[in-house]
Amino acid sequence: MRRAVLITLALLTGCLFVSTGARAQQPLVADLDTHQIAIRSTFTGTELLLFGAIEAAPGKSLAGDERGDVIIVVRGPASDITVRKKSRVGPIWVNTEAVTFDTIPGFYAVLSTRPLDQIAPAPLLRRHDLGIERVLAGTKIDEAHQEFRSALVRTRKADGLFIEDHQGFRFVGGKLFRARISLPANVPVGTYKVQAFLIRDGQVAGAQFSPLFVDKVGVELQIYRLAHNLPWLYGLMAVLLAVAAGWGTAILFRER
C-alpha cells in the first residue's frame, strides 16, 4: 500500500519533469537525486544532490552576466520554536526569559551562485522567502527580541539545520549545474519543499518546485508511531520488555 503510493508519487513527479523538460524553451530544469529519504537505524544524516540545466535567454549567450543566477531552496516542515535565555538567579543559572517564534522551518537551506543580495532586489527575495533573514522576517522583530532571533539562527546553523551557502554551486560547461546539501542526523521528518529559481536581471526567469519526503521507515517508524499514537500501550510494552530482560539475565547468570 505504502509502496504503491510512493510509486505513484514518483511517477507523478516524473511526469511533471518530463513535461516541463520537453518544452525546449524552459530556461531552467532541475531535479533531485532522490525524492525519498528514509531514516533507518543506521541513519547518520545524508547528502542531497541537486542538479539541472539552464537555457540561454532568446538571442543571448550563457557567458558572463547573461547566464543569470540560480538559487535553490530546501525547506522542511515548520513548527513553533521557543528560545529561552538563562540568567543568574542567586548563585545558579536559570532559564528566565522565553520568546516563541511561530512557524519556523525545521530545515532551511538556500544555495546560490552568488550572495543573495547581489542576485536579486530585496522585494523579490522577500516575496519568495529567500534567505534565512527573510524566513524569520514575519516574526517579532523589536529590539528586545533581536538577540533571541540571532540565537535561534546561530544554534540552527551550528546544528546544520539552517544553511546559507553561495559557494557550493558547480557549473559544468556553463549550462549544467549541480550542488550538494547535507542533511544532518536530526532533520525533522515530513514533507519538504525544494524550489529552484533562475534569476536574470533581478527577475525570476524560471522556477521549478518539487517535493522531498523525509520519513522514518521500518522499526524506527513503528516505534515512533506507537510511542506517539498509543503512548500507554507503548509504555506498558517497554516496561514488560525491561522486566523480561531483567528476568532473562537473572536466569542466564544464576549463581552456581
Binding site: S79, I81, V83, R84, W93, G106, L152
Partner: peptide, 16 residues
C-alpha cells in the same frame, strides 16, 4: 554546571 556561566545562554525547544 549550575554555577558556572554556560557556554551559550540561549537554548531552543521545538513545540510539537
Amino acid at each position: 554546571d549550575l554555577v558556572l556561566t554556560p557556554a551559550d545562554l540561549f537554548s531552543l525547544a521545538v513545540i510539537q
